[in-house]
């Protein structure tokens, strides 16, 4: 039973929040290519949601376009989640491999990504007084993704309910630590770069007779 194509598995996993991932794990399904595509859509959705939102709801700073914040808010965030979850759950006897965690997590963010696009689309037809519809859609996407993500972690590592909760909390902590280290490393490299540059200018002054 349950012999679905990879595309059908996506639909199955998203529409069956409590059973879908178990089935998928049982059949060893899920494609890394599709999950990368979803993350790409997540990135595009983040940009669209900020830039193409109707003006009556959202005022974006359109004097300049900087892609880095969008990149951090989508792809870096997702990568931090996957790596954080993997590093925490390897220590907590989780069964999931990095690849499986990536696939399952990517499938679970589909409702949120969809809500990013749908809310941006819908905003062009509604006035500010009707904004509650958009809000509903937005929260539906978040809650759905939350449930899916929770079950994805639960399934991929074969955890109990309570252990999943602690794993999620620890993953969030791991993400924060990673972020902190990243900032630290970046400032260190910046300092090192500045140091080399100042040596260079110093030498330049010396050798200019």
């Amino acid at each position: 039973m349950m012999d679905l194509s990879e595309k059908q598995w996506v639909k199955h996993a998203v529409l069956h929040p409590f059973e879908g991932f178990e089935d998928m794990r049982w059949k060893k399904s899920g494609s890394l290519r599709i999950s990368f595509f979803i993350v790409l859509l997540f990135f595009i959705g983040t940009v669209v949601n900020d830039r193409l939102y109707a003006f009556q709801f959202h005022n974006s700073y359109d004097k300049l376009f900087n892609i880095v914040p969008y990149f951090v808010k989508s792809i870096v965030l997702f990568a931090a989640w996957v790596i954080g979850n993997w590093s925490v759950c390897t220590l907590l006897d989780g069964e999931g491999t990095l690849k499986r965690i990536c696939i399952f997590s990517a499938y679970s963010i589909i409702p949120y990504v969809a809500s990013l696009f749908f809310t941006a689309f819908l905003s062009h037809f509604l006035i500010a007084d009707e904004g509650v519809f958009i809000l509903c859609l937005h929260y539906a996407g978040i809650i759905w993704t939350g449930v899916l993500l929770f079950n994805a972690v639960k399934t991929v590592h074969q955890y109990s309910f309570m252990k999943t909760v602690s794993a999620v909390v620890l993953t969030l902590a791991a993400m924060l630590i990673m972020m902190f280290l990243l900032v630290l490393v970046m400032s260190l490299f910046q300092k090192a770069g500045l140091f080399i540059y100042s040596i260079y200018t110093e030498l330049q002054y010396r050798f200019r007779v």
Binding site: F55, Q56, I127
Partner: peptide, 19 residues
């Protein structure tokens, strides 16, 4: 013009009328 003025409520009202 509401967009140029960065006035969201004016834009909203104009959009409502236009819709």
């Amino acid at each position: 013009y509401a967009k140029l003025a960065d006035s969201q409520w004016r834009y909203d009202r104009a959009f409502e009328g236009w819709r």
